[in-house]
């Protein structure tokens, strides 16, 4: 990739991302949304983050196959259980990574 192309990508990514982040905060600064819409927006976090997690896990970048193996899936499940029990992301991460390493070693 040439330096010029890289600069173009960088500028577009920076401006585009900032526009996404700031757009509605700035636009809706002086007006309010209908109550039902504001309430629906409460679910943005869970919906978006779950979609992002799954997409990263299966590597959904337009590839042909869904790419997550049983060991990764099991590790993620163990991490989720620990996460639900402890409500702590560090414990959750440690448990998930440990499970992944141990299971990979065994199988």
């Amino acid at each position: 990739m040439s330096h010029r192309a890289a600069l173009l990508v960088l500028v577009a990514a920076t401006l585009g991302t900032y526009a996404f982040r700031a757009g509605l905060i700035l636009l809706l600064a002086d007006r309010s949304l209908p109550v039902a819409v504001e309430r629906a927006l409460q679910n943005v976090g869970p919906a978006v983050l779950a979609a992002l997690t799954v997409n990263l896990a299966v590597g959904g970048d337009g590839g042909t196959s869904v790419d997550i193996d049983a060991i990764e899936l099991a590790s993620l499940a163990i991490a989720a259980i620990v996460g639900l029990r402890t409500k702590n992301l560090v414990f959750m991460l440690s448990a998930g990574m440990a499970a992944l390493l141990v299971l990979t070693e065994i199988f």
Binding site: A50, L52, T53, S75, A79, A80, G83, L89, M92, L93
Partner: peptide
């Protein structure tokens, strides 16, 4: 992946 799963 685990990090985003936790955030969700």
């Amino acid at each position: 992946v685990i990090m985003f799963a936790g955030l969700a």
